[in-house]
Design a protein around this nucleic acid. Structure first.
Length: 742
DNA sequence: GAGCACTGC
């Protein structure tokens, strides 16, 4: 069994103290059926009203069957469409029978879902949210020692598993929305399978999913029985095109206009792949419909994608415009990314336009690159999209591909994320959970061996694994952070470079997207505003400047707005920084400081970055192009970088494959530092490109020479003392930002 | 001088 060495062998878990309470309350209940078993209070009027509604749900009829199956089996698969009530009702039923001193966990892939479902169920049970029913998501734990039913994100349960590997605080674990196959759900599948063996008598597992995947789940869980709950949705009529479409975008626009001109009232949802397409489509649809004049009704065409600010996202919930002069009804048209497939549901949609594409992440282990590619969707996805038309009344779905394409070309299910991702972080988590033999680990869909090898290799170089592939003490500390292993490494080594706070800031900002805003109609102003934060050494230190300035302006949202800084990103980075800092102190990592006026201040920051990011570095070759140091890929600095010169060596955060191989978030470094920090990785013999290899040979010679002359090489600490009072000529702190005149 | 689907710890 895996023992968490940091925490000692006998970790104590918070036990839910309800058995005694339960006895007392049960006595009371015997005397009076109007008493809430969980609180001992009289039920409210609302309780009975809601109860009537609940009893109408299809899930209600499956209650006895649920009990029957769980009597015989440790794990069951529960299949139910939207509207069946499975997420809200099943956990409540399970509470009646399987809550003996332990709680029930129900996981969700998304935070909002965990929160809103918990709130709803607390109402249904007539209890206070956060008492008997609660939720747990990052940055917000709304539970107490009375909590017996907890909705949580799947990532949160995984975090708990690190300190409670047998999940002993739960008697039932429910994995909801399992068909979405998030990375975390897939890890939990494997983990639960092992935990079930260790707790055959006191753990029940319920896998809940929409249709399509049920059989696969049953098979994976030793032929678990299936409980099928009918959904409550309206029929959706499906239309296909006769011939393949030349341009799905044009086809989507014209189909939408036709629906508007000829179909009954009812809102339209159009699926496209990204921001640019969506904005273009909205413009065209609006202008084309205006051309049709008063013979058709007025439209409100609204875009929807995740990077849209929340107040604009809210517009999708506004109702259709009023009828026009001729009394023809108005219509709302939502043009959305995949976000409308799972995360956001819009009521009142009767027509869906589905061109059959979405942007999907793909991972190339050979190049170690994740990229986004517009690709055909799966049958499951197409069904999900069609279903969006039948939530309020019978609807229609227009698929902009042929029926034959649907049958023969679309795959059944979207490849699970675990087959499309860099797995360094997954492997570290699995190692931490005590799963050592990854090659034989029971993945529902085993990742490519090469992907696993890449992950193991990276973790080895980061010092998280030893030569045998065992988790090191250092790796164990790394796994405590909710970060990519590379970033955890940077944080842990920052103390050796005397820049813990700076690195905390940079790492926090690297884990949020979009620090800078650049609206299409104000690009010049945005670039001007950004200029005041620019540090010549690159994007990482520029981020640091932004954060410092944000703090100096008291985290003002107005200041962010006028300086084209994303306020939400900065606020969330601030939260993340606090969390990371807490983990650092829990791990007893001392915080260390360097005065910004110290000549080596920026060197230290960059060296700390190298300690984790050394695998992502590039060298300028004689012909003026960059080449990645180890894989010899020809790459270019992304135009959005603040670097306006071409340093010989650079470190990059992200490799994006679009029209070219681009490096994003880049910093100027020195080749010598690479060799000093990771001599093993930059051994010249391992470098393929001749030019780069020669450079490292030179560096190696130079370093060895220096070591020969000074056998007692100065430590960073000694160097720091030497430089303590040296004022830097290169000092560059945050310039005081001016307000932009508009 | 280009363009980033969606989550989550």
């Amino acid at each position: 069994m895996f023992v968490d060495k940091n925490l000692g062998q006998k970790q104590k878990y918070q036990k839910i103290d309800i058995s005694e309470l339960e006895q007392v309350q049960k006595k009371k209940v015997k005397q009076n059926v109007n008493i809430n078993v969980y609180t001992g209070n009289q039920y409210s009027d609302d309780y009975y009203k809601i109860l009537q509604v609940r009893k109408q749900l299809p899930a209600w009829d499956a209650k006895e069957q649920l009990f029957m199956l769980l009597e015989q089996y440790q794990v069951i698969v529960l299949q139910g469409e939207t509207g069946s009530g499975k997420t809200t009702q099943m956990p409540q039923f399970l509470l009646e029978k399987y809550c003996k001193g332990r709680g029930i966990a129900c996981t969700q892939p998304r935070r909002v879902a965990a929160m809103s479902v918990a709130k709803r169920v607390a109402e249904e049970m007539d209890v206070t949210l956060g008492e008997e029913v609660g939720y747990s998501i990052r940055f917000e734990e709304k539970t107490s020692n009375k909590t017996i039913l907890k909705y949580m994100t799947d990532g949160m349960l995984l975090r708990e598993a690190m300190h409670d590997p047998k999940l002993e605080r739960y008697s039932v674990v429910i994995l909801d929305e399992a068909h979405e196959r998030t990375l975390n759900t897939d890890i939990l599948f494997g983990l639960l399978k092992e935990v079930m063996l260790k707790r055959p008598d006191d753990l029940k597992v319920v896998i809940m999913s929409a249709t399509m995947d049920a059989e696969k789940f049953q098979k994976y869980f030793h032929n678990a029985p299936l409980l099928d709950i009918p959904g409550r949705v309206f029929p959706v009529e499906i239309f296909y095109t006769q011939k393949p479409e030349k341009s799905y975008l044009d086809a989507a626009i014209s189909t939408t206009i036709n629906i508007h001109a000829y179909e009954e009232p009812g809102d339209i949802l159009v699926f496209l792949t990204g921001e640019e397409e969506i904005e273009e489509a909205c413009k065209k649809i609006t202008s084309e419909i205006q051309k049709l004049g008063d013979d058709v009704g007025p439209v409100r065409c609204v875009p929807l994608y995740s990077t849209l600010p929340p107040n604009q996202q809210q517009k999708i919930f506004e109702s259709a415009p009023q009828p026009n002069k001729k009394g023809i009804q108005g219509r709302k048209i939502v043009v959305a990314t995949n976000i409308a497939e799972t995360s956001i549901t819009i009521d009142g949609i009767c027509y869906v336009v589905d061109p059959g594409f979405s942007k999907q992440k793909v991972y190339n282990p050979r190049l170690r690159v994740e990229s986004l590619l517009a690709s055909p969707i799966s049958k499951a996805s197409a069904q999900q999209r069609a279903g969006r038309a039948g939530r309020t009344r019978p609807g229609k779905c227009y698929r902009l591909y042929t029926e034959q394409s649907y049958n023969t070309e679309l795959i059944d299910n979207t490849y699970p994320e675990i087959l499309r991702s860099n797995l360094s972080s997954v492997v570290l988590q699995l190692k931490r959970l005590g799963i050592d033999d990854l090659v034989h680990f029971d993945f529902m869909d085993p990742p490519a061996p090469e992907t696993l090898m890449r992950a193991l290799e990276q973790l080895y170089y980061l010092g998280a694994l030893d030569e045998e592939g065992n988790l090191t003490k250092f790796g164990q500390s790394m796994s405590e952070f909710p970060l990519d292993p590379q970033l955890s490494k940077i944080l842990l080594s920052s103390k050796d470079f005397y820049v813990t706070d700076e690195i905390l800031t940079i790492v926090a900002l690297l884990s949020v997207q979009q620090v800078f805003q650049r609206p299409k109609d104000q690009q010049q102003q945005a670039d001007d505003a950004r200029y005041q934060f620019v540090h010549q050494d690159g994007d990482h230190i520029t981020f640091l400047n932004v954060f410092k300035a944000f703090k100096e302006h008291n985290e003002s949202s107005d200041w962010c707005y006028s300086n084209f800084i994303n306020y939400r990103s900065l606020k969330s980075a601030d939260k993340i920084k606090i969390q990371l800092k807490q983990i650092m102190s829990k791990l007893s990592i001392p915080s260390t400081k360097t005065d910004p006026s110290n000549a080596l201040y920026y060197t230290y920051i960059k060296k700390a970055l190298i300690s984790g990011m050394f695998m992502q570095t590039a060298h300028l070759t004689k012909n003026g192009a960059y080449m990645t140091v180890k894989d010899s890929q020809i790459v270019a600095i992304h135009p959005c970088s603040v670097l306006n010169h071409k340093p010989e060596w650079i470190l990059y955060q992200e490799f994006v494959l679009t029209s070219k191989n681009y490096l994003r978030t880049v910093t100027d470094i020195e080749g010598k530092w690479l060799y000093e920090i990771c001599p093993e990785y930059f051994n010249p013999k391992t470098i393929k490109n001749i030019e780069t290899r020669k450079e490292f040979e030179k560096i190696e010679k130079q370093v060895l020479e220096e070591q020969r002359r000074k056998p007692d090489l100065l430590t960073v600490e000694q160097i720091q003392k030497l430089h303590k009072h040296v004022k830097s000529e290169r000092t560059q702190s945050v310039s005081s930002p001016k307000t932009i005149q508009k």
